[in-house]
């Protein structure tokens, strides 16, 4: 661009150049400058002709541009329709974003609830297994009064415990795996609900207990193995729809699983 560096062209009288005329025509001069140019135009016919020619150029260019734009505006150029479409797109995007956010919130909420549930369940499980193990330790050590109701009253024992637990809890026959029913007793859980314990004994005098309490609504859980203390008994824990169970005794995991299998078969057969 060299046009701005060039010296401005001046009229023969050297007073008003093309830039002054441009600013005059375009109404860009302040009052004093405007009066000066007007005075120069008054004096010089050359200047008047030039200004007239420039104004004529403007009119010709305006006519030219108007003629080019004479055709109707295409329908696609409509700011209101474009804005409306954009609002539609934005609304859809917002809808999608809201749906995505909602999904995330559901996920987070489920995660949080699940997290709490997990802890509550883990706590309940631990408490239950501890209670079962404690009951086993205390009563299996009893020589004279290991049970409250003896095996001779087996039918009464089952009816009584089932009634208190509000779920069927009859003593399974474990003679097939070498265990004889000794009897059972009613116990409190740590939460103050009724729990029941059935005690069995093998020929060597090793005692097995089945501890049960009503299930307050937790989902069923498969067998889980616990050994809470190094010198304590071992426990197999599981949850069914109506009750939770703990099988406890001085046996290894494999033996407990075998016994649990026998317990479940005994109930199914009963």
């Amino acid at each position: 661009m060299t046009e701005d560096a060039d010296r401005p062209m001046t009229d023969p009288e050297g007073i008003v150049d093309d830039r002054d005329l441009a600013a005059y025509i375009d109404g860009e001069l302040d009052a004093d400058a405007r009066a000066a140019v007007a005075a120069a135009l008054e004096q010089s016919q050359t200047l008047r002709r030039r200004a007239g020619a420039f104004s004529a150029v403007d009119r010709a260019v305006k006519r030219y541009a108007d003629a080019l734009a004479a055709s109707a505006l295409p329908s696609k150029i409509c700011i209101r329709r474009m804005a409306a479409e954009r609002r539609g797109r934005k609304a859809r995007r917002l809808g999608l974003a809201a749906a995505a956010l909602f999904a995330v919130l559901i996920g987070v909420t489920a995660g949080w609830v699940g997290h709490g549930l997990f802890h509550r369940q883990a706590f309940a499980t631990r408490t239950f297994v501890e209670s079962a193990a404690a009951a086993h330790i205390v009563y299996s050590a009893e020589l004279r009064h290991p049970v409250e109701v003896a095996a001779i009253e087996k039918q009464h024992l089952g009816n009584w415990l089932s009634k208190r637990l509000n779920t069927s809890f009859h003593a399974p026959n474990l003679t097939g795996v070498g265990f004889t029913l000794m009897g059972g007793r009613l116990l409190p859980t740590r939460e103050g609900a009724p729990a029941a314990q059935l005690m069995y004994e093998d020929p060597e005098g090793k005692r097995l207990t089945i501890y049960a309490a009503a299930n307050a609504g937790d989902a069923a859980q498969a067998f889980r193995y616990f050994k809470l203390r190094d010198d304590g008994p071992e426990t197999l824990y599981w949850v069914e729809a109506r009750a939770r169970y703990a099988l406890t005794g001085p046996f290894d995991r494999k033996m407990l699983l075998m016994l649990a299998d026998a317990v479940l078969k005994g109930w199914d057969g009963a």
Binding site: D18, R50, F54
Partner: peptide, 25 residues
Amino acid sequence: MSRVARARRGLQQQLAGDVPLARVK
């Protein structure tokens, strides 16, 4: 301002031959 002035001058010169100033005025 400079560009407008030069544009007017340029157009006026180009059109002067075919478009008599009297008519354009």
